[in-house]
Structures are given as structure tokens and as C-alpha cells.
Design a protein around this nucleic acid. Structure first.
Lengths: 180, 180
DNA sequence: CCGCGTCAATACGGCAGCGTATGGAGGACA
DNA sequence: TGTCCTCCATACGCTGCCGTATTGACGCGG
């Protein structure tokens, strides 16, 4: 008997499949094969596929709300450095899970609400950073939202090498968005 | 006997299902039901589902490459007005098909190549507009790409009412991105 | 040793969806 | 009328996937 799995192993496997191939690839029997067990194990841990999906959303919510902000805060202390770190981190991240969640959110109102809440927190954080570096109050929100949209949008872009996009965003766009 | 369908009716139905519910919803029997026929008709017109999918990509490529540019060009004549029209048009568009194509592109290299080509043309158009209004050559490309990313990204955003986002982008962001 | 709880394997039946084969309907033309 | 072509309906068999039921394996404690 191998080491036994717990629920979190299944949730991780589900999120990996989601990120890699989309929601349609999150299949009970496929995940079981990925984990080298059979679906008996799955049904011991979960009522049905919907149960797993709900737990996946919750797991994503927990990590997504605080992950990027915590990392940026840990790495830099003044707002300008934090903005730079935020850009650098997002622009070099693998956005597949992020975008798979958004694809899912577009089709499921419950998931949509979770993503909206996450977006609101992140945008508020960016806005506060912009305000801290002297961007006028009348513009900080708009710039934060536009910036956030661009950072999300670049995960689904078919032009430009990722490294080039990161460099130009740091050298050209961030200074532009930061103007007082 | 009802009026007979041709291939394009099937392709349109496929694109509608894709936009509305994602690639997984593009199903032969479901499309047949949507069109009030049975799958016998489908298999007269197409070899298999893959045949339909390929034609859908081609149809999207044809329309996506020229659609937005043609509309903007028809509606406005000077570059500043064209930029404004571009923003206004995209920000008020239903981006579901656009994003469904991107979701698909993320998982299929062939589709990814089509989307990349489309993106390149659109970004080049935006860049040319920026250059025409006096944005420095060293910055026009970066600004065009970032702007394009943000316009794409806003289709998958969970914050802000669409109309508010459009207004603030037109009044605050476009002027900022247009600075010489 | 036995009982219990945790965890997992397997068999089963049902459904969605696919592609193939076959026959039907309608229209145009000789 | 018969033939041909275009288009479509239906039946069929197969596969993937789901959830349920049943049994087995293992570890722990009394």
C-alpha cells in the first residue's frame, strides 16, 4: 500500500490539470491516473466532481488573494521598489492557472465572484502604491486598473517574447504610469 | 424540408457556442440541435469535428485581422480620433469570442499562431497611430503593446463596471499614453 | 485475535458524444 | 418517369466518463 493521499493532493492535481489543459481536463479518472490511484480513492475523499471543483476554487482564492502581495511586501519596502517588484514578478510568472481561473470565471458566476474579489484587492494594492509615490489621487485608480488589466492581459498575448515585454514594461511603461 | 444550411451556418453556430460557453461546448450534436437539424447534415458538410474547428479558426482569422481596424478607419480620419475610436470600440465590445479564441490558443499551437499573427497586426496598427500623434519612436512600441494588453485584459476583469472603465480609460489613460 | 476506521481497487450501469452506414426527401434535367 | 445530386434523418456500435455499490488492505487499540 502506497502512502495514502489526502484531499489536498487531489486539489493540487486538479489545479495543475486546470492550469495545463483547462477546466475540461479536470476529470476524476484522469486525475486518479495522474496520482497513480483509482477513483475509489477520489470518492472516499469527495462527494463528486463538483465537490473537488469547489475546493479548488477555495484553494485558489486563499492563495491568490495574498500570494503576490505578500511576496512583493517581503521583497521590497518602499512603494517605488514594490511597484518595480510587482511588475517584475508578474511579468515573469507562469500565468496559466491565473488565466484558467478567469476562463472558468467567465462561465460560472460563483467563480466569477471569487475572481472579482481577488481583483478588487489586488487593484486596491496597486492603487495604494501609486498614491504613495505621488500619483495624483484623481488618476491613481484609473492607472492601477489599466496597469492591472495589462498585466493580466499579457498572459494571453501572442506577440513579443516574455522577457522583452518585461524589460520594456519596467523601463518605459512603469515610469510613464508613475508620473506625478 | 426546411431551407438547407451551408457550411457557414455551422461555422457561425460553432463560433457562437465557443464564445458563449467555451471550446468544450462546441459539440456536433448540440450544434445540430441549435440549428434544428440532426448530425446527418453535419457529416455531409464536414469530415469530422476537427474539420469544423479548423474552419472556425479560419473564419475568425479572416474577420479578426481586419474587423476592428476597418471599423476604426471608416469612422475616424485623424490618428488621435482613431485612437479614441479604437478605445471606445474595444472597451464597449463583447469580448467573449476574442477571449475564447485566446483560451483555445493557449492550448493549441496552431490556433496560437493565428492569434499571434492577429495580435502582431493590431499592435502594429496601434503603434503607427501613436507614432502619428507624436509619441517618441523609442516609446511607441512599448506603449502600443501595453495598451493592447490592457484592452485584451479588460475582457477578463472582475472589477469595475464596463462603462466606468471605458470612460476613465478615455479620459485619463489615453491622454497619458499619448503624451509626447 | 477482533473490531473499527481510513483509504483504495474494482465492477457495474447509465449517459453523452463521436463517427459510420444506410436510407429518405426534394429538386433539376433529360 | 428515371437518374443524379444535394442535403438530411436515423440507427448503430464504440469510447470516455460519471457516480454507486461492494470488497479488500492496512493500522491501531482493546
Amino acid at each position: 500500500m502506497k502512502d495514502s493521499l489526502d484531499r489536498s493532493a487531489w486539489v493540487s492535481a486538479g489545479l495543475a490539470a486546470l492550469a495545463d489543459k483547462g477546466l475540461d481536463a479536470v476529470r476524476v479518472e484522469r486525475l486518479a491516473a495522474d496520482l497513480n490511484v483509482t477513483k475509489g480513492s477520489f470518492y472516499w475523499h469527495f462527494r463528486d466532481r463538483g465537490d473537488l471543483l469547489a475546493m479548488m476554487v477555495e484553494a485558489w482564492r486563499t492563495s491568490a488573494t495574498t500570494d503576490i502581495i505578500t511576496r512583493v511586501e517581503a521583497k521590497a519596502s518602499d512603494p517605488a521598489d514594490r511597484l518595480k517588484t510587482l511588475f517584475a514578478t508578474v511579468l515573469r510568472a507562469d500565468g496559466r492557472l491565473e488565466m484558467a481561473m478567469r476562463d472558468w470565471a467567465a462561465r460560472d458566476a460563483g467563480v466569477g465572484a471569487v475572481v472579482a474579489e481577488t481583483d478588487a484587492r489586488r487593484v486596491a494594492y496597486v492603487e495604494a502604491l501609486f498614491a504613495s509615490i505621488g500619483v495624483p489621487a484623481a488618476e491613481a485608480g484609473a492607472r492601477a486598473r489599466f496597469t492591472y488589466q495589462a498585466l493580466i492581459g499579457q498572459f494571453r498575448m501572442g506577440v513579443g517574447a516574455a522577457e522583452d515585454r518585461a524589460r520594456e514594461a519596467l523601463e518605459i511603461i512603469l515610469p510613464l504610469m508613475s508620473r506625478p
